[in-house]
Design a protein around this nucleic acid. Structure first.
Lengths: 203, 203
DNA sequence: CCTACCGATCGGTAGG
DNA sequence: CCTACCGATCGGTAGG
């Protein structure tokens, strides 16, 4: 990976280690060792270990939000299947673009101290609500089966996030294959697959 | 919770703390404090922190395996939808019966040292293969849609495991509601819901 | 189950 | 970015 700044290299190394061993399972000296510098030297670039976590989590939260914004622009409010399709593809795209940072965002945000933690918690809730309202609307319009929207949202979002545990950039499935597969599975879960599959999946 | 032995109380406290803060984020003294004893006193009952993790993880692995065994007994090999339905319900049942231990099993086994870690890794692979072969068979018999069995298995199992992040014992949904909802969503994901829903979901 | 203690490592600072 | 160092905490042991 080509690094533009030292700071970016630090966050790359930290993302990789936090992904593999967790935030508490990674020491400042582990991060430094990955960059071939002394532990104390890290503090020339960062103010604390938690600040590094915060930076990764905050930026990744923004990427998920921006991708969902971009994906749903111009899609008819009444088209629940189409909206869920693009939301799923957007989410999968952000995960696959940087599995390590996505993994840290998804699983390590709880290690943040209370104020930052609750800030992320609220943004996660709002993000989840986008999926839920699409599902509620699909159920209301009978586009989807009569699923429980809260359970269905949790089911789908945790399935999408689970990608970070098994997706490998140079594995059998190309990013587009994963996006297609996951969009089909998610739509199928709520009973909206038949419609979406017959219509294709326009973006 | 009624404790039969001190050892059990230790594993209860550890499961709760490992679930909330992770294995590395929990100290031996944290566990001791939850039991109102000194940190060093824990070693009268356990040989190491990792042994406590191992005990929780190993027992929970066995519970998942036993539940899958029991659920599939007497179900026709050719009935992919029926088999997937009971596998999903069995998995959800084990998670809901003890969310904290299930969470530790699912997310903290990576903290085990190499030999125990690879033992659990193999058992997880074998367990996952049960789901995958049912899905492969359902696809082959056109009971299910032509999903990618590896992706579909990962999608479904990570969704089921994601339960530990949001299920609350005294929440809105009763265990049976969650099992029904998740069985429907999982069957739907692979396109087998119509069949299962019309047939009902016998156990 | 306690007190007293061990060496190692933790996140972080001082001063260059 | 380094060396030298800080107090706190880590998992664990000795001996009762």
């Amino acid at each position: 990976m080509v690094e533009t700044t030292r700071r970016q290299a630090i966050e790359d190394a930290a993302s990789s280690l936090f992904h593999e061993h967790g935030y508490s399972g990674t020491s400042v000296r582990d991060i430094a060792r990955a960059l071939d510098i002394q532990g104390a030297s890290l503090y020339a670039h960062v103010t604390s270990k938690e600040e590094v976590l915060w930076s990764i989590v905050e930026r990744t939260a923004t990427r998920f939000e921006a991708a969902a914004d971009a994906a749903t622009v111009g899609i008819d409010d009444g088209d629940a299947a189409g909206r869920l399709d693009v939301l799923v593809r957007a989410h999968v795209g952000v995960v696959i673009e940087d599995v390590e940072r996505a993994s840290v965002f998804v699983y390590e945000w709880r290690s943040l101290a209370s104020s930052k933690r609750s800030s992320i918690s609220r943004r996660r809730d709002a993000y989840e609500a986008r999926f839920r309202s699409v599902i509620e609307q699909g159920v209301a319009s009978s586009t989807f089966d009569a699923v429980d929207p809260i359970a269905a949202t949790a089911f789908i979002l945790t399935a999408l996030n689970g990608l970070v545990a098994w997706y490998r950039p140079n594995g059998r499935l190309q990013p587009a294959d994963v996006a297609d597969a996951y969009a089909g599975l998610a739509l199928g879960a709520v009973g909206g697959a038949a419609t979406a599959r017959h219509e294709g999946t326009p973006r």
